[in-house]
């Protein structure tokens, strides 16, 4: 374990951008866990007297049309946004990686069926598909997670299938069969661990995409319902006020959203360097 830490330190010292991404990730994680405990104001408390105030020492990100503290709302929203994104990425990974690995390894009918499902999903404009799914299944957090997972599914299938296919005839796979491993064990115990680094990168990249997608659904009113604090809704609400000069209502949640997506995209590459054992010399 200490070797892994030492390696992580080495990779980070050579790559300040990744270090920055890890710093941001730590900040986001902190906000997600302790957000509601450290928020200076109640994110739901309205107060007409302090509505639409620009950023100040008392209200760092200003207040919205109902007088709620935007900083507190952005902070508290972190947990919900990250949870949705994380849950959908895990779901997409479980479905996509497992069926993709099986498709790449077995080929034949398995590959054709999995491939067709992925192709069908890819044939839709993905955001519209997500909209449709949420509209059909009902407007709640579980369904946002499912919709986001489904539109990410083909990305996992493609990567997992290609990577499993490369390794299908590798020496160590044959050796595993000779060692008495059945097909399932070869797949899960030998091939899957080898494509985990690549899947980690994929997870980190789709994490950013999942955050954006969840926020996008909420932005158009399909998803988390107001007054619940969520970045997408906050941007949507704030958008009405940009014209009249109250820019801070949309800007701060929007910037946070962008930063989170940015962070996960950078994280992807950094993770790959750390997890890949071949670079751990």
């Amino acid at each position: 374990m200490s070797a892994l830490l030492r390696h992580a330190r080495y990779v980070l010292s050579g790559n300040p951008v990744t270090a920055l991404a890890f710093g941001l990730f730590g900040l986001l994680l902190f906000a997600a866990i302790f957000g509601s405990a450290i928020a200076p104001y109640d994110p739901l408390a309205t107060e007409a007297a302090r509505a639409l105030k620009p950023p100040s020492a008392a209200h760092w990100f200003g207040t919205d049309q109902l007088g709620r503290d935007i900083f507190s709302r952005v902070l508290v929203a972190t947990r919900l946004d990250l949870t949705i994104a994380f849950a959908s990425v895990i779901l997409a990974f479980l479905l996509g990686a497992l069926s993709g690995v099986a498709a790449g390894y077995f080929g034949g009918w398995t590959e054709r069926i999995v491939g067709r499902i992925a192709d069908t999903i890819m044939a839709f404009p993905l955001f519209v598909l997500a909209m449709g799914i949420v509209a059909a299944l009902g407007n709640n957090v579980t369904n946002i997670v499912i919709a986001t997972a489904i539109i990410n599914y083909p990305l996992y299938v493609r990567v997992a299938r290609a990577e499993a296919n490369i390794r299908r005839d590798a020496g160590f796979v044959e050796a595993a069969r000779l060692s008495g491993n059945g097909e399932a064990r070869v797949l899960l115990g030998h091939i899957l661990p080898n494509i985990m680094p690549i899947m980690m990168v994929q997870m980190s990249l789709t994490m950013g995409y999942a955050i954006l997608n969840a926020a996008g659904l909420s932005f158009i009113g399909l998803g988390v319902k107001p007054p619940h604090p969520e970045w997408g809704i906050m941007v949507a609400e704030g958008a009405n006020f940009i014209q009249s000069g109250e820019w801070w209502i949309a800007l701060f949640p929007g910037a946070t959203l962008m930063l989170a997506v940015f962070c996960f995209n950078l994280l992807g590459d950094g993770l790959r360097d750390i997890v890949d054992p071949r670079q751990r010399t």
Binding site: G171, F172, E174, A175, L178, G180, N194
Partner: peptide, 27 residues
């Protein structure tokens, strides 16, 4: 397809050409 789970599996084993390729990089 059934041989991996068969008791006779242990009776025939093999040393591979490229030792590097025949070892799982994560084992």
């Amino acid at each position: 397809a059934d041989f991996a789970g068969h008791p006779a599996r242990a009776r025939v084993q093999m040393v591979f050409q490229d030792a590097g390729d025949s070892l799982n990089p994560r084992y």
